[in-house]
Design a protein around this nucleic acid. Structure first.
Length: 897
RNA sequence: GGGCAGUUAGCUCAGUUGGUAGAGCACCGCCUUCACACGGCGGGGGUCACAGGUUCAAGUCCUGUACUGCCCACCA
């Protein structure tokens, strides 16, 4: 029997690497698209949300990967051809920043290297750290197809990017122009609106007097950014504001500058805020920009791209904007133009990558005209694509409704260079997929390529089809597009999901995914979002090292209720490591009892027709196995991952381990037919439990499976659970009567255990128990299984006797209608037993009173569904019966005292 | 300013169509029972934030309040 033996303790560190290598070398997760097209069960595909190539896997990635892996492994079990494409994102700003920082430690800037050398440096970095992220994805057990790994800047994807850019440009959906954009002085690039994070910041509200040009007094404005006043070209008031109506059309003198600027009227101005008069700086504020265009004001830029005051700032030229602010306030005060200063907290935009304050800045940028794309993308989310949980639909709609044109140019070096050229001769601006040799308009060969690169999300938006070989017409696209589901956290719903939707529809004419599953965001201990830039990441590798991958995965699956955020606690991972250990030990015990020799294969023959096996314990566990199977299937289909985990946890621990294994121990020792039956069901339940658990815990189940008798040899010469189908359903094994019978046995056993524990009877004391059954059916059941009761309640003897009377000195209870009597003969303090009985009666009386109250209510009896009422009535009868029996027993006991 | 979540056992969180509550950890008692002390058996602990409403019946549906958090937003 030793050939099946598992080692005494489960050691994830020894087991996991083996399986990772095995699955990769045997190409267990590499599908054949031709076969996929012929598979009657269909295909299932996911593209990984590509982690940043520079990054470290944080716990959010681990969570995200776990859920995707469960879906993929489960889909494989269901017979589908599964493709899960892995890959990494080049992460323009983030990666460039990291490499620049590293250069900084050498005392260099990227300009010292020059564009080409710098990009080379980034590629080196990418090669070094891309391997890191790849190792981490593997560590999680992710069943991705490494032969199809992609990178957003690899040759194929770059071609897709150029094709998309040129197409959109020629369709007029990409344009170039001077606009006010969000400018990061530190990263030295434009940012899209949604790359700006607003954080509250303490500041001041300065009130400044602008004297009227006609000398008739002054107008006081309020501002949080006095340094921008040098670029003011108007003061705006609300046309309905009586305080100022007489000033509209007049001019005021801009202090310190001495320039005359008009007072204009616009409903945009809030009368309640500040003084009700707004200084307008079209070049340095988004709203003022709009006002400036509307009222055709002059645009004067006074702050440059470095965040310093420029020549237009006169004497303040060369100061940083912070220094300028201080100096200007000082000068205003000296000039008597400063009316007041108050403390003022307000929201300030910060760069989502480096957290520097964002400066609104006018510059030439590239934009995608999103309105035509967004309309279709919005509709699709309530049609061809479904989002889970549906509550996100509203948020998605709102975003699609308010979306503005997308600024896609970045003044970086790391990224997809914009494939647009200007002819030095005739000035023609054109886009081209390949580097052009001459101007398409004038034919001259002196061309200049746009220096900017594309927003990282531009290439990410193409991910679902670019990874499958687009623009070639590949079999992958045919078989696996649209993908089945996109699994992601809500924080990139807009950055990424919406844009994939727009691009997928525009270029493939089909949605990129059928489902979008938005999972919770994993937060740190304080409930803050974990992110690389904040530095509050938890390293999943550390958890894997300490507790094993399966523990981590199971914990996160159990956490995965559809909510908004979860906080991961290490204690809980440790708790579920106990579960892994429990499974291991249960399997170890089972395998010690499941010989593989032909001579012992009677149990395998019995297992082929389990529905024919007699015995309440077998029928019960087989019934529960079927229920667990279907519950699990439904839970995963509905993305109720936590339900899936909990279902398995309860079934394996509380039913297989706590009851089934204990129930069959005597039979396993017995030999003969009984032993064969116990083994047959044990084998069946164990193997199917492993299959059910495998998508959540791939490693421990693979290792156990390998040792299981009759496990088929697969690619690589060993059994491989990852290639096995979902266990077949066995409706003939559904047996509600077995559940009822089992409950009666459990009730009897638990009642005896409770009495023993509460009366402090030594466990070593082999008591005799007498059971007086409530009816013939109970008598038969209990008699047939009395040896089980003896074993599990640690008795010496168990007598089933319909005529039994409690001896004078005894403890007693009523369980499922059967009277249970433990003759004690001085083994216990009688007073203890009386107290215990009183407690039991009180508990029953409480429940009885509650139910009786309900049943006394005529409305309830009439209106509630009959089965509910019947159930309550039955319970009341049961309680009354038990009470009578207990009182009689108690009375007898009193007499004995 | 708008929108969306959450408020359930000491802590962290589950609870699918309404039928008076569960898990992990922690806690108490007993147990070295031949898979497992990362264990077994037994036990204690919750007026499900608050106030109304619908209903025979509400943690579960509706309204409002309070607190916490998140997202969006141009109040300088």
């Amino acid at each position: 029997m030793s050939e099946n033996a598992l080692p005494k303790g489960y050691d994830p560190k020894a087991v996991e690497p083996h399986w990772r290598d095995h699955w990769e070398t045997t190409r267990a997760f590499t599908p054949d698209p031709t076969e996929a097209l012929e598979n009657p069960k269909g295909t299932f595909s996911i593209v990984i949300p590509p982690p940043n190539v520079t990054g470290n896997l944080h716990i959010g990635h681990a969570f995200n990967l776990t859920l995707q892996d469960i879906l993929c492994r489960h889909a494989r079990q269901l017979g589908k051809t599964v493709l899960w494409i892995p890959g990494e994102d080049h992460a323009g700003i983030a990666t460039q920043n990291v490499v620049e920082r590293r250069l900084g430690t050498e005392g260099k800037t990227r300009h010292d290297l020059g564009r080409e050398a710098f990009i080379e440096r980034v590629w080196e970095w990418k090669e070094e750290y891309g391997e890191n992220i790849r190792r981490q994805i593997k560590a999680m057990g992710s069943s991705v197809d490494w032969t199809r790994e992609r990178f957003t800047m690899d040759e194929g994807l770059s071609r897709a990017v150029r094709k998309v850019f040129v197409t959109l440009f020629n369709e007029g959906l990409i344009y170039k122009g001077d606009y006010i954009i969000n400018w990061c002085n530190r990263c030295h690039t434009a940012l899209a609106d949604d790359e700006v994070e607003h954080h509250p910041q303490a500041g001041h509200l300065w009130k400044i007097r602008y004297p009227l040009a006609d000398g008739s007094g002054h107008l006081t404005i309020a501002t949080t950014r006095p340094e921008t006043m040098l670029g003011d070209t108007a003061v705006a008031v609300n046309p309905d504001d009586e305080r100022y109506t007489h000033l509209i059309g007049k001019t005021v003198i801009l202090p310190l500058v001495g320039k005359e600027i008009p007072v204009i009227a616009d409903k945009y101005v809030d009368r309640e805020f500040g003084t009700g008069a707004l200084k307008v700086t079209p070049s340095h504020d988004h709203n003022d920009w709009e006002l400036g265009r509307k009222h055709k004001l002059e645009f004067i830029q006074v702050i440059d791209a470095e965040g310093r005051m420029n020549a237009k700032a006169g004497k303040y030229q060369g100061l940083t904007k912070e220094e300028a602010r201080e100096k200007i306030v000082e000068d205003l005060r000296a000039a008597g133009a400063l009316e007041s200063v108050e403390e003022y907290g307000h929201n300030v935009g910060h760069c989502y990558r480096c957290q520097s304050v964002i400066e609104p800045h006018v510059s030439t940028q590239w934009f995608v005209k999103v309105a035509p794309l967004a309309a279709r993308a919005k509709e699709a989310m309530r049609g061809e694509t479904q989002i889970f949980p549906t509550s996100w639909l509203k948020t998605y709609d709102h975003w699609m409704d308010t979306i503005r044109d997308w600024c896609i140019s970045r003044q970086l070096w790391w990224g997809h260079r914009i494939p647009a050229w200007t002819c030095d001769a005739c000035g023609k601006l054109f886009a081209s997929e390949e580097t052009p040799s001459c101007c398409p308009q004038c034919g001259k060969t002196s061309l200049t390529q746009d220096p900017d690169v594309l927003d990282t999300w531009f290439s990410a938006a193409l991910w679902p089809f670019s990874t499958m070989g687009w623009p070639e017409k590949t079999k992958e696209l045919e078989a696996f597009y649209p993908t089945s589901v996109l699994v992601t956290a809500f924080d990139i719903l807009f950055f990424w999901v919406a844009r994939m939707m727009m691009m997928g529809l525009h270029f493939m004419d089909r949605v990129p995914f059928r489902h979008v599953y938005i999972h919770a965001l994993v937060r740190d201990g304080e409930g803050k979002k974990m992110s690389k830039s904040t530095g509050n990441v938890i390293d999943p590798l550390e958890m894997i090292e300490k507790y094993g991958t399966d523990s981590l995965r199971f914990t996160m699956t159990a956490f995965a209720a559809m909510g908004r955020d979860i906080r991961l606690s290490e204690e809980r991972i440790e708790g579920y490591r106990h579960f892994v250990n429990k499974i291991w030990n249960a399997a170890r015990f089972a395998l010690l009892n499941l010989p593989n020799e032909e001579a012992h294969n009677l149990y395998l023959r019995l297992a082929a027709a389990p529905e024919t096996l007699e015995g309440v314990q077998y029928r019960w566990i087989l019934h529960r196995l079927e229920e667990t199977k279907s519950a699990l299937k439904t839970a995963i289909a509905d993305y109720r991952f936590n339900d899936a985990a909990l279902t398995l946890y309860t079934f394996i621990w509380n039913e297989i381990c706590d009851w089934y294994l204990e129930l069959i121990k005597p039979a396993l020792q017995a030999g003969g037919e009984e032993q064969a039956k116990a083994r047959a069901v044990l084998w069946l339940v164990l193997r199917e439990a492993m299959l059910l658990l495998h998508p959540i815990m791939p490693f421990v189940t693979a290792e156990i499976w390998k040792a299981l008798p009759q496990a088929p040899i697969r690619e690589g010469g060993i059994p491989d659970i990852a290639r096995e189908p979902f266990p077949a359903e066995r409706p003939a094994c559904l047996n509600p009567q077995a559940v009822a019978d089992m409950e009666m046995l459990q009730a009897a056993i638990t009642a005896i255990r409770t009495m023993r524990a509460e009366l402090n009877i030594a466990p070593s004391l082999r008591l005799k128990a007498v059971i007086r059954p409530q009816d013939d059916a109970a008598r038969e059941l209990l008699t047939a299984n009395s040896s089980l009761i003896v074993f599990l309640a640690r008795l010496g003897e168990c007598v089933i006797d319909p005529e039994a009377h409690a001896p004078k000195a005894s403890a007693s209870s009523v369980a499922a209608g059967n009277e249970i009597i433990l003759p004690l003969e001085g083994a216990v303090n009688f007073q203890d037993e009386l107290t215990r009985l009183d407690k039991e009666l009180a508990k029953m009386a409480k429940e009885h009173a509650m139910l009786a109250g309900k049943l006394a209510n005529e409305n309830y009896v009439q209106r509630a569904p009959a089965e509910i009422v019947e159930r309550d009535k039955a319970r009341v009868a049961e309680l009354e019966d038990a009470r009578v029996k207990l009182l009689a027993l108690q009375q007898r006991f009193r007499e004995a005292l």
